[in-house]
Amino acid sequence: MFEAKLQQGGLLKKILESVKDLVVDGLWDCDGAAITLQGMDSSHVALVEMLLRAEAFEHYRCDRNVTLGMNHNHLSKILKCANNDDIVILKAADQNPDSCSLILESKNGEKTSDFVVSLVRIDTDQLGIPETEYSAHVKMSSGEFQRICRDLSQFGDAVQITCSKQDVKFSSSGETGKANITLTHSATVDKEEESVTVDLKEPVDLTFALRFLNLFTKATPISDTVTLSLSQEAPLVVEYKIGDSGHIRYFLAPKIQE
């Protein structure tokens, strides 16, 4: 039997909003320690990995490892019925389940809703994500990053990210013209979510498709800050922490000049 009870249903709502426009169907791997979701967009350009450890749950029981093939649109419809402060319980049999139950309990306990969603067969390959030493880590406000990606999308379909010791520059150009946004490394980190910290081993200069970055920033409500990890020749990692009990990581390869 797999059963997981989340005190804050709003978190699951935000997680679905973070992945459903990028990955239609995803494999939710549940084991004794955590729920892990990994999926790619339909064109296999980007990858998202979500991890939510058992400690995030009020109650977590997973007698045998079970993989739930979830259609994220169906799951999102159910979660649209949930309030942020509802308790959400996920339940599934652990012998090749063909469905998953979701129970929503209102905070005052007067309303209980239960849904059964059919699981989908997904035969995507699970990819191994190698541990990588990155040349640069940029930690910044998630809202700021979302705003930069949105604003620069008006100038071009790609953003060039250049990191130096002092700052990180986002540039885009197209027929509208050229736009540069430069964030200076904050000297003092007083308010974490408003500062920009650049941890640089060596300078990087990479170009990424804004269409995907704007899909990644759907996770902005999950965390006040976002961390970008960059290396020449390696996919960009855009990471949003889920409190202390997990993360959502998006991976996107840099564009290469023909």
Partner: peptide, 14 residues
Amino acid sequence: KPKQPSIMNFFTKA
């Protein structure tokens, strides 16, 4: 026009 590689060029099947 710059090319967009697939993520599968970088991560192997587990």
